[in-house]
Nucleic acid binder design. Structure first.
Lengths: 241, 241
DNA sequence: GATATAATACTTGTATACAAGTATACTAAA
DNA sequence: TTTAGTATACTTGTATACAAGTATTATATC
């Protein structure tokens, strides 16, 4: 354990962060990236030694990571779960679930401010692409979706988002960094998809919304189809009361 | 603060629990019941003194309660949010959202074991009613729904459930205790509703499922209608690809 | 009386110490 | 070689101590 440590989490995002927050961010990235393999057993004492901090912030970190479902705390040591293909699909299930829910709420409310805000983020995404800043782009991608979710003013849906967000952030960071090198043309497409997303919200056009959700999530995982099928089936029987 | 403390959380559910777990359970109940009013500012030191424990388990408790969205941790002190009508409605939004999702998954899988398990819980509910045990009944109600959710084997939906569960548990406990005294006839109805729920799963009958979801959640809050409407609307435009 | 400054009593975050329990490894006896 | 028992090195959970920062309050000055 004496190799010089290379940090995976952007240090500039941790300017005001406490030791505990640094630990949890870095530990999460190491798990998501596979640097710490799933199945590994984490000991509070060892981690404290490796990070050169006391057990207090480590304990805090392990509690958080276990609430995020990427580790599992047992009697002796915490077992790393990590993210397999299955877990990633599941995360996108949840994202689609909450975003479709939120969309329905938004349709009924005034969304002029939201649309303005989303366009601002969209322009910032463009700048990130121009300057090849994968980390910044990831942040804006997340910010985009969070802004939509916040607009619905639903504290428990927001709670779900907050519980999911750090893992999403890590995944997206790693994925975007890779794509910036290998598939740079992806970003124009992601950009266009988000523009479509805004249009769907602005026009309150369901068909467009479905299409854009498709495009936003299909390219990451081929998962939207099933979701919609579920909701169609449910609705078929839905002439309730 | 010298009145003799009456505990709201069933002490027999805490036999193997650590101090931290006791604190979080009791604190949660005091917030949900309104004994600690929303808007109150909680201090780690004061709480530690009141519960006669150190700050360590208190810190842990506050972290957990803030992840559950019933307090909000700020620079100085944690502000109690509690549960207003709005929050309760939102919790049921999420419950309906995840249970409808789960149902779709179950339809495609073998549910014989699940049905057997649910019937077992149903019989135990009957016993709880017979012996007027509101706490036990609450536990079984939660167990019923958790069993369904677990059957789908979806770790991130389960994560949402787990994040929601403690608050649900507290709410249901308080509500059932009250109803056992005031509206005892409610329980036969709840029992029947759960039986219907099982039937819907067993027969894989969507219409029945919608009906039972209605009955299971409408009586607590009049909230299902909107939900289904949302899904119908979404599905209308849903001939994707 | 109003305002600026200093002292005080809080706050959180981290480190450390200790107790109680659990797994592992080692030693002794069959 | 196997088995029983003990010693040791871990584990978590809790208490306590300390540092750094933030409100609040009191005091001094205008």
């Amino acid at each position: 354990m004496n190799e010089p440590m290379e940090f995976l989490y952007p240090s500039k995002w941790l300017t005001k962060a406490s030791t505990g927050e640094r630990v949890v961010s870095e530990l999460r990235m190491q798990i998501l990236s596979g640097r710490i393999e799933s199945g590994t057993i984490l000991s509070e004492n060892k981690l404290a030694a490796e990070f050169s901090v006391s057990r207090s912030p480590i304990r805090e970190a392990l509690k958080i990571l276990s609430a995020e479902n990427i580790i599992r705390q047992e009697r002796m040591g915490a077992v790393v779960i990590g993210l397999s293909e299955k877990e990633i699909e599941e995360i996108y299930d949840v994202r689609i679930l909450i975003e479709t829910f939120i969309y329905q709420r938004l349709v009924r409310s005034d969304i002029t401010d939201l649309v303005k805000e989303l366009n601002k983020i969209l322009e910032m995404m463009k700048v990130s692409i121009k300057y090849n800043d994968a980390d910044e782009f990831s942040l804006q991608d997340l910010q985009f979706h969070e802004t939509i979710i916040r607009a619905a003013n639903h504290s428990y849906i927001l709670m779900i988002w907050n519980n999911l967000k750090p893992v999403m952030e890590g995944m997206i960071l790693l994925s975007m960094r890779k794509r910036f090198k290998e598939n740079h043309q992806d970003f124009e497409r992601i950009f266009t998809n988000h523009a479509l997303y805004i249009e769907a919200i602005e026009k309150k056009d369901k068909t467009l919304m479905i299409q854009s959700l498709h495009q936003n999530f299909d390219d990451v995982q081929g998962r939207v189809e099933d979701m919609w099928k579920s909701q169609e089936i449910l609705a078929e029987g839905g002439g309730t009361k």
